[in-house]
Design a protein around this nucleic acid. Sequence first.
DNA 1: ATTTTTATGGTGCGATCGAACCATAACATC
DNA 2: GATGTTATGGTTCGATCGCACCATAAAAAT
Lengths: 203, 203
Amino acid sequence: MPRQVDHDRRRRQIAEAVWRLAARGGLEDVTLRQVATEAGVSARLLQYYFGTRDELLLGALEILNDDAEQRARERLATLGGAPGMHAVVRGVLLELLPLDAERRNRHLVYAAYFVRFLADPVLGKVARAAPHALENLVAGLIAQGQELGQVSRDVDAAAEATFLVAGADGIQATVLLGQRTPEEAVALIDHQLARIFTATIRG
Amino acid sequence: MPRQVDHDRRRRQIAEAVWRLAARGGLEDVTLRQVATEAGVSARLLQYYFGTRDELLLGALEILNDDAEQRARERLATLGGAPGMHAVVRGVLLELLPLDAERRNRHLVYAAYFVRFLADPVLGKVARAAPHALENLVAGLIAQGQELGQVSRDVDAAAEATFLVAGADGIQATVLLGQRTPEEAVALIDHQLARIFTATIRG
DNA sequence: ATTTTTATGGTGCGATCGAACCATAACATC
DNA sequence: GATGTTATGGTTCGATCGCACCATAAAAAT
């Protein structure tokens, strides 16, 4: 076994090139040659690490998903000792907004893939996994908030959770298009959260 | 002036082919040859009516926008004599959902164009026009509802309007991905509207 | 009937695409 | 040091792309 090279590192390096190109010009611009140039490797290497172009697109998406989950966990972990339901839900929703270059790029990549998700069953499967889990997570957090008296019993936790996630997603698009600043987006989220989490200033 | 042919009709015929292809496989699949085949005309005709490929993409988008606006007006006109604010807002929001093949296709086309909107200033200008107007429209309707006592004075009309539009947009995406049925989507919208339009059954 | 403008089809060119193929440098193992 | 596997670069091929160019049918204008 010669020439041990960190395969995951190489794959990530190539995947990041795919992301940049997809975010910049859509999947049309993700050609093997452009990816190779952007990643600073030879085109042959793409075949070696990913195989065909479709497999490259799939692989880059999987790595992006793993990345998103890990970053989200990291950021949620920085919320402090006992965050409280309000803060946690806020953290989850803010993960959907393009508040920094990394998140902005990620959501642009998802946008570039979107239509493909419908046509390609394999990609679709990968894409459909995440959002539903998010809604359930938020719904559970709101329900916990009800147990703790931070949320009125009158609210429909599942319905509100779904609409919060969908709303954050919709606001994300407007920020990407430059119709709204990130600050305005956060304010809109906070406005809705203040409505749902009535009985809380801290937590 | 010979051979008078309905130019608009021809352009629409070609534009519809662009929409179908874009909805099916993204802008990558919108090649001149494929569009020509899909529209049942010669590739030469695309050049004649639209010019370059970029101009074709722009033209097809403009026609789509005009179409969307006209269809929305038509549907709103069928709401009956004195619709009331609740029903009008509902009608506007439902226009954002893929409740039939036409609306589904339209939103898929927008999705296919999305990343382009950021890179191409011309396309971006066309795309940015619509949504902001929608939010203002809904905000105005909610404000009118407040005047008429159908909406509490406590609600922030602008903030709620924005979140309603964004939420409808986000829900739209989940319906397109098959994560939610159109009926569930409508129910979610109605749930939010029932919260905002408190004092109304016939509204 | 001739002319002129509009509308349409076909064909060819240079560039680029995805992917298969061929070569070989690097290195662990024996 | 010989050997065999892993990792990388380069080249080539058939297909397809956008688009420019050439031809001509159809009909209004003269």
